[in-house]
């Protein structure tokens, strides 16, 4: 009984310390509004995961210190073979924990992100203001087409701030993956099909200043995989319009 109380105390202390760390862990800059869902899910898992982690660690540490034999143990421990109520309780707690994590942050996050339907990726945002960008991945570069403005650029993605962007992603050759770390979400570019990603850039920035704001291929695609990046610029709406005009003149 004394042992149980002490290990409980150890668990409380370690959990407290752990939660302090978990609440402090800094994330890379979140530059799209969808990134918030991912970061909140991450933080939530950290907070829920910490007590589980510290529980096992406390029992492990406590046993190591308290039940250590000086050398070759002269006698055996108590012959406890099992403890059915304990095992059932353990089973119930782990099952409930696992199920709760499926619901929050799992299903809830999927719902918020609009990733629940028969499509491959985000639910299509079809609103008036949605900017459509067709992304074609190829070995080893990115081709961005803005069908609403009839412009095409290579390895450079310019996006207006605060406007939802629907990326329609495909590949010309092998499987690639479209990922902007600062925006969090990623999805593969698969030859023969189109995948969708809806992102709303929420802060201005560009790759040279913020390196996590870059398009990075995230699926091994051959020799040039590591270098298959594109620069990203998020600019205010008027600057975007000016950029579009300038591109169309070329």
């Amino acid at each position: 009984m004394r042992d149980l109380l002490r290990v409980f105390g150890l668990w409380l202390i370690l959990t407290l310390l752990g939660e302090m760390v978990a609440l402090q862990i800094p994330f890379p800059p979140a530059m799209a509004s969808e990134a918030r869902v991912v970061d909140e899910a991450f933080r939530y898992l950290l907070i829920v995961g910490t007590p589980v982690f510290t529980f096992v660690l406390s029992v492990l540490f406590y046993s190591l210190l308290r039940f250590r034999a000086a050398g070759d143990p002269p006698e055996d421990g108590p012959p406890v073979f099992s403890h059915t109520p304990g095992a059932l309780a353990w089973l119930a707690v782990t099952s409930l924990l696992a199920l709760s994590l499926v619901i929050q942050p799992g299903l809830r996050g999927l719902m918020e992100l609009g990733w629940m339907g028969p499509f491959s990726g985000s639910a299509a945002a079809d609103g008036e203001g949605t900017l459509v960008v067709q992304v074609q991945a190829r070995q080893w570069s990115w081709l961005f087409t803005y069908p609403q403005y009839q412009i095409q650029v290579k390895d450079r993605l310019v996006l207006p701030m605060g406007r939802p962007v629907r990326f329609e992603i495909t590949s010309r050759d092998v499987v690639h993956s479209f990922w902007i770390p600062a925006f969090r979400l990623k999805i593969d570019a698969v030859p023969g099909r189109t995948t969708l990603l809806v992102l709303t850039p929420s802060r201005p920035g560009r790759t040279a200043v913020e390196p996590t704001l870059r398009v990075q291929c995230a699926e091994l695609c051959g020799t040039g995989h590591a270098a298959m990046t594109a620069t990203v610029e998020v600019v205010p709406a008027d600057q975007f319009a000016a950029w579009v005009d300038q591109q169309r003149k070329q």
């Binding site: 991912v38 942050p105 990922w179 770390p181 969090r184 979400l185 990623k186």
Partner: peptide, 13 residues
């Protein structure tokens, strides 16, 4: 973190 889809969409690969 990898089993939970919202975080996996960032952490995958």
């Amino acid at each position: 973190f990898l089993a939970d889809v919202p975080t996996d969409l960032h952490l995958q690969d």
